[in-house]
Design a binder for these strands. Sequence first.
DNA 1: AGATATTGAACAATCGATTGCGTAAATTGC
DNA 2: GCAATTTACGCAATCGATTGTTCAATATCT
Lengths: 356, 356
Amino acid sequence: MSTDITIYDIAKNFNVSPSTVSRALKGHKSISKKRTQEIQAYAREKGFQVNSVAAKLRTQKTHTLGVVVTWINQPFFASLISGIESVAQEHGFHVIISQTHDQHDLEVQVVNNLFNSRVDGIIISLAIETESFAHLEQFKNRNVPLVFVDRVPSAFKGDKVIIDNFQSAFIATEHLIKQGYKRIGHITATGKLIFKQRLDGYKAALNKYGLDIDESIIASAPSLSEENSLAIARKLLTQENRPDAIFAAIDSTAVITIQLAKEMGLNVPNDLGVVGFNNDPISSVVDPQLTTISQPPVLMGKIAAEHVLNNKEHMSEVITLDTELIVRGSSVRLTEGNSNGKDLSSKQFSSQDMGQ
Amino acid sequence: MSTDITIYDIAKNFNVSPSTVSRALKGHKSISKKRTQEIQAYAREKGFQVNSVAAKLRTQKTHTLGVVVTWINQPFFASLISGIESVAQEHGFHVIISQTHDQHDLEVQVVNNLFNSRVDGIIISLAIETESFAHLEQFKNRNVPLVFVDRVPSAFKGDKVIIDNFQSAFIATEHLIKQGYKRIGHITATGKLIFKQRLDGYKAALNKYGLDIDESIIASAPSLSEENSLAIARKLLTQENRPDAIFAAIDSTAVITIQLAKEMGLNVPNDLGVVGFNNDPISSVVDPQLTTISQPPVLMGKIAAEHVLNNKEHMSEVITLDTELIVRGSSVRLTEGNSNGKDLSSKQFSSQDMGQ
DNA sequence: AGATATTGAACAATCGATTGCGTAAATTGC
DNA sequence: GCAATTTACGCAATCGATTGTTCAATATCT
């Protein structure tokens, strides 16, 4: 139970003032080389480590980033955080993570806690589309950089790192149309802007190609949990005049749809085309592999972090990252005489070594 | 750019001392009801929030937990962290996350940073099995609770939350043996204790049932990245006298093995049985679904967090959580006349709502 | 040699909340 | 009515590092 050594202890040892020690330890030029060296040597020997809490109080800089997401253990957010943490670490910053579990009141609470902890920046993906931003305003007042990621507010100014959900959904839907699917359904979640945008992109594509928008094959739930996804997929696939393709707003729902279709004896992609969104790991594991929109979560995290850390002028900037349609077996109808879709399996290795 | 309001500002307003304000704000009984109420009301009105950095310095408690993992964006760790954060939040604690990217020197660095930040507890899954624990000793010296999770050191005392890797691997291997597989290979990683234990469990099962241990069908790499896994799987499956089953030390490797086998025209499970480890989301998505060992990462995180937070007496306690063999299609040979394995598909919903 | 410039380090305030101790005023007890 | 409590609050130190300012001791220059 050794008590920590402080600059005062070191100062006493050399009969100098704490200020001299503080300066010597960081190589300030106003301290002689001899003193600097002997103090640093002594500090190393005694295992001195600065008390960064004290330093934080004095300098009013915590070198800490707050990150707020709904669930850490969703692949997208896990990768986002991984990217943020990597960049933060390079800059000597810590990362505090909070989950909102998609509840607005929890979001308010954790955001306030981060505010009290004097984080030097905050990156947030909103829980719920809301009109109350009081908990976020305070950061602006204190001039703390605030960056929204993925689920951004429409009615609040600030830096945003996003993808073009409308355009991506448009491309995904267009792909299905070009593959010859005629009745393309959509499964989505309610209440969040990104899903609204994906829905709009889907509808725009149908419109462009003169296909009807049939509300009976568009279904949604407050959250796309496994249970909800399965229930919705079952409803769509078992109804009369069922869709011949599904564009799901997230991969997990698309995968569940594929699994259900196979269970029902439907062939994917011949009887049912499926496209997802995210390019989660599961998308290249399901059979047939899932056509999906790839967005770069690690990169989004890195960019968001860079942005928070380099926040010189706080103009509201919106950074839109490119997505990519990854075409795999689930949406490309097989030609005659080609009985498997393996030729379409697009193997992709992530740029990051995920080996355990 | 409003500057923050402090207890001194409030004190001035009421012509009382800061100590009175401080006490009033937390309802200390030595302050009269009237004062307490008016001060609290005023504080609320002015949007006062305690500067927790100052409080931390004074009280020497940061109410912060440090978490160190190799990669945040591995499903196991993402869930682990999610569990930790949930519990921490309930207790009013923050969680700082750091990644080591499996590098020992990075681990030393981030651990030291957490130490300097005066975290009130630390939960760590080691990067590399090592003999140097100086960076961890300091926590003991300062009496900071330290809990190891998953990848724990063999040569360092401390609380540990783990699963029985040996026993789990034994059960997994035994399952393959009982299914009638005769040449069971193993794919694993080198240099980490948990993998050594799984290897030992595998060998013990073979021994018990009188099967040879054939080093030519046991293969490993420093890390089980996708590239490495694929290379190893290919080597095993293409060699003469190839194994008729593979027990892979992690799910992602098992999935890659299944995909490769299918590409090679092998039927899983008839020509090749496969068992994985972790019960990652991909395991129930691959076709056939993967038999695997389920360990409870969210629960592990919660228990580790509870343990750190309630650290009364610091005796070294080892908590071993149960695992479960989840039998799915990849390891159960089909009976005649049963042309699909769907009857074996074991649908499982995680206890946590993962809907986006 | 005298004046000026430079070096090296001490002083003291500061960041904002917390808390042990002391004390005047108000209340209670007899 | 006076001592004994109790109530309500102020004082001042403290947590440990940082930093603007000051100042004495050398060093440099004409």
